[in-house]
Amino acid sequence: METLAAGTARRDASPVPSDKGLAKAAEDAVVLRVSDVHKAFGDLKVLNGISFDLRRGDVMSVIGASGSGKSTLLRCINQLDPPTAGEIYLNGVPFGFRVDASGKRTPDSLSNINRLRQDVGMVFQQFNLWPHMSVLRNITEAPVRVRKMAKAEARELAEQLLAKVNLLDKRDEYPARLSGGQQQRVAIARALAMNPKVMMFDEATSSLDPELTGEVLDVMRGLGEEGMTMLVVTHEMGFAREASNRVMFIHEGRVEEDGPPEQVFDNPKSERCRAFLSKSYR
């Protein structure tokens, strides 16, 4: 109950602040700033100017039809597909670009990008666990090799995280022997092992059988209640409504709605959002 209460308190605190002091505090708490991000693949424009701020502890669900650009947005944020235009800041630090003395912007070096990527956890629709490594090794590989954590320490951390996702007994298994839901929970533990500032979920439950989505959503819900800042691309409207404090609806690469779930679900301003929701709720 305690975590739940903390979760509620956090959610109450996040609406737009009214006076200047609060505004400053809110500014400090911005973990991820996405500013007018565009992405085109050749002639195909996928993102057409997306902007939003993610504050510490925010759980934002991103909803929208297939092809609306939700997944591309996540991939732009951690530079797997660098944006064509626009800016991304992680804790105020430019992510993917750098500004030289004359004010000219250039793409950042890969090593700098990699340093920032360590702070952004990503969970993929297809889990993407490495099949040749045990569950434990999947989790410890990046902390040991990238963060240079001692092996014993990484192992301990991995075991803690596995306990958290209820998979401690599978630590020596290989991914191919796990169910989809179990694999996805390992993938979440793997991302958490880097102690990220933001966790991004790219349709984390879309390739799971219905009876397995629950266990993954429960883990995600728990993370949100602990105060993890999360950006969740999802088709799970129940999760978006109940577990997030903000919902963003994207249509054709633009933000059509961005607000608390009650507003977006019960009283959407955008006609397209209303149409989308009526289809999604059948």
């Binding site: 797997l80 990527r117 360590q118 993407n128 990046a142």
Partner: peptide
């Protein structure tokens, strides 16, 4: 992509 997203070179 999973490796890249974790900051692996």
């Amino acid at each position: 992509q999973a490796a890249h997203s974790l900051g692996m070179s």
